[in-house]
């Protein structure tokens, strides 16, 4: 039996910095990404941060 062809889509569960970065890299690598987020906007906790350690860059 011929093996079923694999799908070129990926599901990423979680739209925080990790989910978003994976989605971007996967899209860049040639895959179609569904980015699932339980809240109404992506960004997660990092979007709530004012500055980031150690460079105190703006988090958004």
């Amino acid at each position: 039996m011929a093996k079923k062809e694999k799908s070129g889509s990926v599901l990423v569960v979680g739209g925080g910095i990790t989910g978003v970065q994976s989605a971007l890299d996967l899209a860049d690598l040639g895959y179609y990404v569904y980015l699932l987020e339980k809240k109404a906007s992506i960004g997660g906790v990092m979007a709530q941060l004012d500055k980031t350690f150690p460079t105190n860059d703006c988090a958004i």
Binding site: V10, V13, G19, Y34
Partner: peptide
Amino acid sequence: LEVGAVVMAPG
């Protein structure tokens, strides 16, 4: 959704 893989990143 038909997908080839799943990434769990719920934070």
